[in-house]
Amino acid sequence: MVQRLKEEALRRIEGRHEVDLEPGAVARDAGVDAQDAARHFPDQEALMSALIVGAYNAVADSAEAAAEAAIAAGADPLRRWVAIWQGVREWAVAHPEEYVMLWGRPIPGYTAPPETVEAVGRIVGAMVAVLRDARKAGELTEDRPGEAPLSDGMLQNVRALGSGPLEGLPSGVVARMFVVWTQLHGMVGFEVNNHLAAVAVDPASVFEYGAGSMGEYIGLRRRADQ
């Protein structure tokens, strides 16, 4: 009996991820005419896509604005890198539900439209610009002595990612990008889901430290005055 109760409880918890965005119902609760709503959003998927594309573009705006401000301030590549990720974090903390919508558990049965790839590409593009500039300036460590060789599977991952926005970057840097991307989004998600409050007095400083550490890990050099 206890096991059956636990299984049913888990089933209900899993059900929390089911989303009901039927436009007519949303229009009613929003106090909007259902027919007018249907002209903008003919079905649930259209409404969800609008939310997701809008959120991705908003976080990209924040990351790009942070990058531009860092460049204007004369920041070096590592400081620019940290600024971009701080832009991502600041948006996420201000919009936790939207961040979880983007980088939380996928919505069952929903496939995001191609426009989301373009928006995510803007975030990645800001980071890649830092890496390319650092490489030109001789401030990007491409190979690490003693670093573990890439497995056949990881080489496949690197080739796939390296044929896109990271094309032309060293394979070691591309491989580290997998770790950096998941690590820093993991840190943001940890804070957004309120798992950091009990252990960190100053969450922003924890993230700044993590973003800087991941910047060094990917190959950006820390200057003596930092």
Rank of each mutant, 00 (worst) to 15 (best):
R144L: 12
T116E: 07
A38E: 14
G121S: 09
R223L: 11
D76W: 05
A58E: 05
A204M: 03
R132H: 12
M154P: 00
H17C: 07
P145S: 07
D29F: 04
Y217Q: 15
Y99S: 00
D133Q: 15
E191A: 01
H17E: 07
G215K: 13
R4D: 07
E98G: 06
R105W: 05
A30G: 02
F207V: 01
R132I: 15
I84H: 07
A34Q: 10
P42F: 13
E64M: 02
V180S: 02
I123W: 06
W91V: 00
I71E: 12
G219S: 10
A65L: 03
G74Q: 05
V130W: 10
R135H: 03
E115M: 13
G215W: 11
G138V: 08
I218C: 11
R159M: 12
G54V: 13
H40C: 12
A204Y: 02
G109T: 06
A69R: 14
I218P: 08
F207D: 00
G215R: 14
V120K: 05
H195K: 10
H17W: 11
R39P: 00
I13V: 15
G24A: 15
A9C: 07
L131C: 11
D152N: 08
L78K: 08
W181V: 10
A204L: 04
A83M: 06
A66N: 04
A129I: 14
R221G: 02
D29N: 06
V158E: 13
P106R: 14
P23L: 08
A204W: 03
R176L: 01
A25M: 05
G172R: 15
A94H: 01
D20Q: 09
D36R: 11
Q3L: 11
H17Y: 13
A60T: 08
E142P: 06
I84V: 15
D76R: 14
E191V: 02
G162E: 07
E97T: 06
A27C: 06
Q183P: 00
A160G: 06
E8F: 12
D43M: 10
G164M: 14
